[in-house]
Design a protein around this nucleic acid. Sequence first.
DNA 1: TACCTAAACTAACGATTGTTAGTTTTTATT
DNA 2: AATAAAAACTAACAATCGTTAGTTTAGGTA
Lengths: 190, 190
Amino acid sequence: MRKLETRKEEIVRVAAQLFKEKGYSAVTMRDLAAEMGIKAASLYNHITSKQDILQTIIISLAEEFTEGMNKVIRSEKSSIEKLKKIVQLHVTIASANTNGMASLNTDWMHLEDQLEYYLKLRNDYEQNFLVIIKEGVKNLEIKSKNPEVIMFSMLSTLRSLYLWLPNKEDVSSSDLALHLSEILIEGINK
Amino acid sequence: MRKLETRKEEIVRVAAQLFKEKGYSAVTMRDLAAEMGIKAASLYNHITSKQDILQTIIISLAEEFTEGMNKVIRSEKSSIEKLKKIVQLHVTIASANTNGMASLNTDWMHLEDQLEYYLKLRNDYEQNFLVIIKEGVKNLEIKSKNPEVIMFSMLSTLRSLYLWLPNKEDVSSSDLALHLSEILIEGINK
DNA sequence: TACCTAAACTAACGATTGTTAGTTTTTATT
DNA sequence: AATAAAAACTAACAATCGTTAGTTTAGGTA
């Protein structure tokens, strides 16, 4: 009999939901405790600080993206295929954790000890993304537009998925990833 | 001799910058006062509350977008041309107010009295956007993908502009708008 | 039954929050 | 120089913040 979710994991999960609704700074430990049905002081039997919760949410997600990107980079595929894999990566992670994605995107600046580490992961991710696009331009797979504008556009859409997925529970993840890839890569005009 | 900027406008401008860096909830009136070189209590000679500042930032921007969208809707242009006008609208507003755009995008939920009004403006904006895309599909101008996915993708990119523009001061607004339109409408693959 | 531990509780702490009241200083106008 | 208005100041308020200390309760194990 494995325990499905530890008490700490439960706290982190509920906290991520509240952080999504109001942001890290606006959520108090008393808010979180009330949502858990306990008193604020009781939270500290499971977590060491409010900051600890934020770190747990953000760093695990950031590392998940880093790991996914590394697999894509190592794969022997065309640049366009790599971009499709990245779309799939974002859809998969965002689908499984819409609440945590909100913290990753909007509350990262409230990280304390781990801020520098997070920024390095994010920067490396963007650099890898950019390299894939530049390779695609060199290979004549991708139009020779400004690669940074292309990355910005794609990444903006992918990073916003968490806002939109909760409204689209009827669409399957793989369908959405395919559809999104088409729009991002082939455009919308006939 | 016209006064270029009232003291209240100056406070709102500085507040928008701080809100962008740390978010509305994490910025204290003492932070803001220090940045202005005065004491917190002195702020209240010019503004009525912290909430007042947030409202001033967000509502004026939301109304600017609404006004721009209404002009686009009333214009007699093809659907693709209307979409290009919307791209231009976002680039123009975001360029002129990158800090305020952060509040509009991430701190709107901290609006109190004006929350409902903001949500109506935003919802109307998205509905108008959607209508333009659906008309384009009917006119055979736009590929018959899911219009909501198209809107989500375009709007995500446009709403993220404020994060990216400060790094690209060398690119002219009109060039960027053209470039972005091409990528969003024609895609990236050869 | 006796015991241990996990997890809750009450009470409180020092710090910080947005804001108000009342006062003084600065600035501009006559 | 006198005056009025604008804008700063000091001091403090009640409320709320994250967190700690010490205690009680509930559940499982010896």
